[in-house]
Structure formats: C-alpha cells, structure tokens
C-alpha cells in the first residue's frame, strides 16, 4: 500500500485499517479527516472538540470511543455528535420541535406573536419530559450514516486534542494504523449488531406495544388540545383588545360559528355555475363572436400545421425515421 499524505488541506489524515470479513476478505484502509473544530458560531466546548469528516457509515459513539482509545488511550473521549443528529437538533431549535408543532396551523402565528413568554429555565425540563412522552418509538436499533458524512468529537480537555493530532502523525510514521473496532472490541450489548439481526429487530420495533403507542398518542392529543385552548383564549382576548395602533385583530370564531368547509365549497360551486351560465348565454350571441371564433380556430389550425412542420423537421434531423424497417 502506498503511503498516504499526513495532511490534506488543514485536515490531518487518519488512516484506519479495516479488518477483513469473510464476505470481503481484503484489508482495506479507511481515511478519516480530522481537524480542530472551528464552527462559525463558536460554542464553549470548541477548544476541546475535533471535527471529523468521512466517518464510516456504521459509526456509533462507541466505535469512535474505541478508536480514540486505541490512539491516545482510554478516558480522553467524552462524546460524539454526528452530522444527521446535529442537523435534527438544529432544525428543532427553529421551532420545529415536535411539541412546538403540536398546534393548529392557524394558531401558530397567533401563539408566536401573542403567546405568553415562557420562562426558559424551569420550562426546559418540562419540555424534555413532554417531548419524550409524545415521541413515537424508534424503529431502528441503530442508524446508518450517509457515506462521507461528518461528526464532532468532544474530548476530555484541550490537551487530548493535541495528543490525538500527534498520535495521528505518529501513526503515519510507524505505518501502524489504528483498526476499526469490530464487534468483539466493543463493549458487550452497547452496540446492536447489523445484518440480519438488525433487520429483524427493525421489523419487531415496527410493531410497538399498543399501550405504549396509545399513551404517546394520548399525550400528544392532550398537548394539542391544550395548545388549541390557549390559541382560542388568545384569540378571544384579541377580539376585544385593540393593539397599540388602535386596530382590532380579526381572528377566528366570532359571534357566529365559522363557516364549514363543505358550505364554503358549495357556495363556490354555485358561484362558478352561475358564471358559467352567464358566459354560455352570451357566447355565439353576436355575430362578431362567431367570426372571431372562426378566426381563432383557423389560426389554431395554422399553428398546428406549423407545429407539425417543425416536428417533421426535427424528425428529419434525427434521420432514419422515414426508412421502413428491414
């Protein structure tokens, strides 16, 4: 195997030797690219984080823990955040959290603008609890990463970062690459196996216990009902309260009940019918309409004729179209 460069760009290249498997009995080398984590929006843990790209698809925190342990010894590794997980977290922070979307669509804006400002601190725990209650059980024992995706590894301290980078350099010199942990190297029971067992587990998890499912749905309904209630209350309040400019916001639910969907549709259909009828009565009523229509039809015919010509032209370009098959 040709030696690989120790760095590429500002990344250190970390070669990882992949032990052969009976189905693919070859010694492969996987390359991780590692550098210090410098996100655009700094966070307090940046100094002891490493940014890793091109993690293997079957990576888990346990895998990376074992890998870093083999590089710099145990106890340096704290946690790892994978690309897809962080994305999820990111999107959730943008009010896409499950418990935040548990509200009627029309109420979203209302609640955002006029809802009570929650107190952050004591809400956090409450939110987490609600979130867990509402979330449906996962159907996979462990996820697969997209090939070539990234992760952020949090280490114990800044010194560990130094050590890791040094160890990578050393691995290049000695040509002793750390090995990707196999199922034997990982703590028993921590990492569910892939392959058939993984697929079977998925099928089993796809059919969750009915009570648990019901509980989750109930929790959601309760939350949703509460939000609906809140929205209705705010709406009611707003109906009577002019804002600072003196305008009263028009909101749902007034004196009369809101028009039902079916009624609205019926009304629309009637209106369309009426228009149609009116239109029909007046077509071909005047002579000029007839003349114009005929003209339009002729123009249409001419247009189509031109179109055919063009198509024929195109076919001629392609050639071979006009010779009978032998």
């Amino acid at each position: 195997m040709a030696s690989s460069p120790a760095t590429i760009g500002d990344f250190s290249v970390l070669p990882v030797s992949i032990p052969p498997l009976p189905s693919f009995p070859k010694n492969a080398v996987h390359y991780l690219y590692v550098r210090r984590h410098t996100p655009k929006i700094p966070t307090p843990t940046d100094s002891r984080s490493l940014f890793v790209t091109n993690v293997p698809v079957d990576s888990t925190e346990a895998h990376l823990r074992a890998l870093f342990a083999s590089l710099v010894g145990a106890g340096r590794f704290e946690s790892a955040t994978f690309e897809d997980e962080s994305k999820e977290a990111h999107s959730q922070s943008q009010s896409q959290s499950l418990i935040d979307v548990a509200q009627p669509a029309h109420a979203a804006r209302l609640l955002q603008a006029h809802g009570r400002k929650r107190k952050r601190e004591d809400d956090e725990a409450e939110r987490a609890r609600e979130e867990a209650a509402v979330r449906l059980p996962s159907t996979w024992t462990r996820p697969l990463r997209r090939s070539g995706s990234t992760a952020v590894v949090l280490l114990a301290d800044e010194k560990s970062v130094q050590q890791v980078l040094k160890a990578i350099g050393k691995a290049h010199k000695t040509k002793k690459y750390p090995a990707w942990p196999g199922s034997d190297d990982l703590p028993e029971g921590k990492v569910p196996p892939l392959g058939p067992a993984w697929l079977k587990a998925h099928n089993r998890l796809s059919y969750p216990d009915r009570q648990a499912l019901q509980a989750s749905v109930d929790a959601f309904s309760a939350l949703f009902a509460r939000r609906e209630q809140e929205a209705a209350e705010i709406a009611k309040r707003l109906r009577n309260e002019p804002d600072e400019d003196g305008f009263v916001t028009v909101t749902r639910g007034g004196r009369s009940a809101p028009a039902s969907r079916t009624e609205a549709e019926e009304a629309k259909r009637r209106m369309l019918e009426k228009q149609e009828k009116k239109k029909e009565e007046l077509t071909n009523f005047y002579r000029f309409q007839l003349r114009e229509r005929k003209k339009a039809e002729q123009a249409e015919l001419l247009k189509r004729f031109d179109e055919d010509r063009r198509k024929l032209e195109a076919m001629r370009e392609k050639k071979g179209k006009f010779v009978p098959e032998a």
């Binding site: 052969p20 492969a28 079957d58 392959g195």
Partner: peptide
C-alpha cells in the same frame, strides 16, 4: 495536492459490515 479518489475498498468493506451475515460474498 488535495485530490482524493473514491475509496472503493473501504466502501465495500462497509457494505460487508452492514450486511454482516446477510452478505455471502
């Protein structure tokens, strides 16, 4: 200096790991 190429063997090794007993060869 920064040119990289697809790591075919590593990818196939990954597939073998995902499939585990499912993949014969």
């Amino acid at each position: 200096a920064d040119v990289v190429e697809v790591n075919r063997e590593a990818i196939l090794a990954e597939i073998a790991r995902i499939g585990a007993a499912l993949v014969d060869k």
